[in-house]
């Protein structure tokens, strides 16, 4: 387990908050639509093996909202510049949900600095008749109950009220997520046809109880990405890396050194 250092860097005129911890080959972790509340156990475990970069996306958490941010493709361009600004190569990109979608959009543009990709319950494509539920119409309790599978974790979350600062952050995160994923809902209909360009080892990791993107999404992504491997984590929902941090971190490490 390793701690993280917190810094701000400016990339594409956007002041960006970055947590960085561990040592070794670089990992870029891309968080989901809910934002990244902190240096989570999953990240600490990865940092035992890698040099982990975990930024707040532009428009989320402590990062600025740049005027250029209109769609997920903008974040893909941004993160390609981000890797360039740190001169990182051989990067293992690990993306959860919205972050998985960003990773896919990066990879169809350029894998020059990317060694592999791990997609944790990734957004980005649409499986017919299996669209995600309307998270924007849900009240906070319903959202928690939909995202997680572990009942104890759900009750713990629901019994911990948000601070005013957290409310402000979640509100802004939610706005940015709406900007990126309102319609079509958390997907880019033109992404799928170019997934064939992905030429780095790709690992698709899914919770078998995911109620945002059903397990069928894992198989569908596997069909489109040559040589992709699928790992299913049992007894976990959409927030698999929070619910089963150890198992998911182990899966990432096992995929490749």
């Amino acid at each position: 387990m390793a701690d993280a250092k917190e810094t701000f860097v400016t990339v594409c005129d956007c002041r960006t908050f970055v947590r960085r911890g561990g040592a070794g080959q670089p990992v870029l972790f891309l968080h989901g639509a809910g934002g990244l509340p902190g240096w989570q156990p999953f990240l600490a475990q990865l940092a035992g093996h890698y040099d982990v970069f975990a930024p707040d996306h532009p428009g989320y958490g402590q990062s600025d909202s740049p005027p250029w941010l209109e769609e997920v493709g903008d974040l893909a361009q941004f993160y390609l510049e981000f890797l360039k600004s740190f001169d990182l190569t051989g990067v293992r990109v690990v993306g959860h949900s919205l972050g998985g979608w960003i990773a896919l959009e990066m990879a169809i543009r350029s894998t020059a600095r990317i060694k592999s990709m791990t997609l944790l319950s990734a957004a980005g494509i649409r499986v017919k008749d299996l669209g995600p539920p309307d998270i924007f119409a849900m009240d906070p309790e319903e959202l928690v109950r939909t995202l997680f599978h572990d009942q104890a974790l759900i009750e713990q979350q629901l019994s911990t009220p948000l601070t005013p600062e957290q409310i402000a952050t979640v509100t802004r995160n939610r706005m940015t997520s709406a900007r990126l994923g309102w319609n079509p809902r958390f997907c880019n209909p033109k992404l799928r046809k170019w997934l064939r360009r992905i030429d780095v080892p790709t690992h698709i990791v899914w919770g078998d109880q995911d109620r945002i993107f059903a397990l069928a999404y894992a198989a569908e992504l596997q069909k489109e990405i040559a040589g992709a491997k699928v790992t299913i984590i049992s007894g976990t929902g959409h927030m698999l890396h929070v619910e089963k941090a150890g198992a998911v971190a182990d899966a990432v490490v096992a995929f490749g050194p």
């Binding site: 119409a137 009240d139 906070p140 409310i167 509100t171 802004r172 939610r174 706005m175 900007r179």
Partner: peptide
């Protein structure tokens, strides 16, 4: 209507949206 439906993100002021997130008015 559910307050999240009445105030979708970005439609109205930040203050109204905070009420949605805080779950104070459903």
């Amino acid at each position: 209507m559910p307050v999240g439906m009445f105030f979708p993100p970005g439609y109205t002021s930040i203050e109204s949206m905070k009420r949605v997130v805080a779950g104070k008015q459903s």
